[in-house]
């Protein structure tokens, strides 16, 4: 008997009597009086920076500044080159400084944002860039993860990710260091 059959057979033999899945009443889960305020607070606590009031102008300034510095940037907000970026390899993207992209949804309870494969065009982009800039429609902020999974289709594409803040580590004496292996900073424009 091969491993697969042995495992499946032993599991079938040893498993306990069938029990039911819980009936999850999602009305029991947390709802926030002010979704945006909650989202911004918790996202910034995780090391991100939010722009809300004057966000359209702030975003334009942000893009202009990075452009002026002459750094390698990829702007998926307006770019029609998404196809071209999709095939770039890690060594071609190594020098990427800033990446701009749109998130599909934000979660108030934890500050996470869902980015589907289509939105990132290349799976490496949100991770390999030094600085990540996300644009999120404030109308797409939901209360909690249960609502999030109802709204997105997490398995519709090949890959998708919830991102909550810049990459970080506390592996040295529990000291928080922002900028582990992924992006070193995260800016979020709510507009």
């Amino acid at each position: 008997m091969n491993a697969r059959e042995t495992i499946l057979k032993t599991v079938a033999m040893n498993k306990p009597e069938l029990t039911e899945l819980p009936d999850m009443d999602l009305s029991l889960t947390i709802q926030y009086p002010d979704l945006i305020q909650q989202f911004i607070g918790i996202m910034e606590a995780a090391g991100g920076k939010a722009y809300y009031e004057n966000s359209r102008q702030d975003l334009l300034n942000d893009i202009a500044e990075v452009k002026a510095e002459g750094k390698f940037m990829i702007n998926l907000l307006e770019d029609s080159n998404a196809e071209e970026w999709a095939s770039l390899t890690a060594s071609e993207l190594e020098a990427l400084d800033t990446c701009y992209l749109r998130a599909e949804l934000g979660v108030a309870e934890n500050g996470a944002m869902w980015i589907s494969e289509k939105q990132m065009s290349n799976r490496l982009l949100p991770f390999i860039c030094q600085h990540l800039v996300i644009v999120l429609d404030p109308g797409d902020v939901v209360n909690n993860m249960h609502e999030a999974y109802r709204q997105i289709d997490a398995t519709a594409e090949g890959f998708g990710v919830f991102i909550a803040g810049p990459s970080k580590t506390a592996d040295i004496e529990q000291n928080l260091v922002i900028g582990a292996h992924g992006a070193r900073s995260l800016r979020v424009y709510l507009l």
Binding site: A46, G111, A112, G158, F162, I163, S167
Partner: peptide
Amino acid sequence: RLLARSATGQPITTYSSHFNKPR
């Protein structure tokens, strides 16, 4: 919702990556 809060007290890990298909 349970994992990161229990592990480190974060509301969620920075990345929760969902793999469905290879490129």
